[in-house]
Amino acid sequence: MSEEVSEPIEVLRLPVELEYQYTAGKSASRFLRGLQQGKLLGQRCPVDGRVYFPTRGCCPQHGVPMAEEGSIELPDVGTLVTYSIVRVPSANIPLELPYVTIQVLLDGADTVMMHVLGECELEDVHMGMRLEAKWKPEEEWETSVGNILYFVPLDEPDAPYESYKEHI
């Protein structure tokens, strides 16, 4: 036995891992299979007619299944509703700092999706910018929102504030 005296251990870092199987369910599966084909599929609430994207098959506000007529294909263009420039690292986010986290309202959708902005100088980022999705190469498409690498600015006039303000 060594006679070395070491500092008492106060905190041990013990990573844990939990493996699980995720069953997406009917509605999310349709949404994810759509993504695999490069399609953005939303669904309409039968109560107020609003289009949800992404969708989980039921309306969180009215507690009813989404309308049965199926999915509504949305374009991969939309409006930047609000954003933040992030300068804080996080172990789960592989992006280089700083990056721009955004809320995008796709044309025809009534809910925002969270994503990131690319190919844009930080000082040019602003609310109301028109954006377009930048996709991964088609051969890399999976059943994931990650098929969209990021959104890029479109060469279009800004959307008027009134058109997106209720989504902030």
């Binding site: 995720y22 997406a24 999310a28 994810l32 993504l35 609000t82 954003y83 933040s84 992030v86 804080v88 690292p89 996080s90 172990a91 789960n92 986010i93 992006l95 986290t101 955004i102 809320q103 969270m114 994503h115 990131v116 609310m127 059943t143 994931s144 929102v145 990650g146 902030i168």
Partner: peptide, 26 residues
């Protein structure tokens, strides 16, 4: 870390509580 969990089929873009609330503050 706990607030930035990678969910299946999605991309994590929001770094912690600050990343979530900053766009609302804006």
């Amino acid at each position: 870390w706990a607030l930035t969990i990678s969910m299946p089929f999605s991309v994590a873009t929001v770094a912690g509580a600050g990343g979530y609330f900053a766009p609302l503050v804006r």
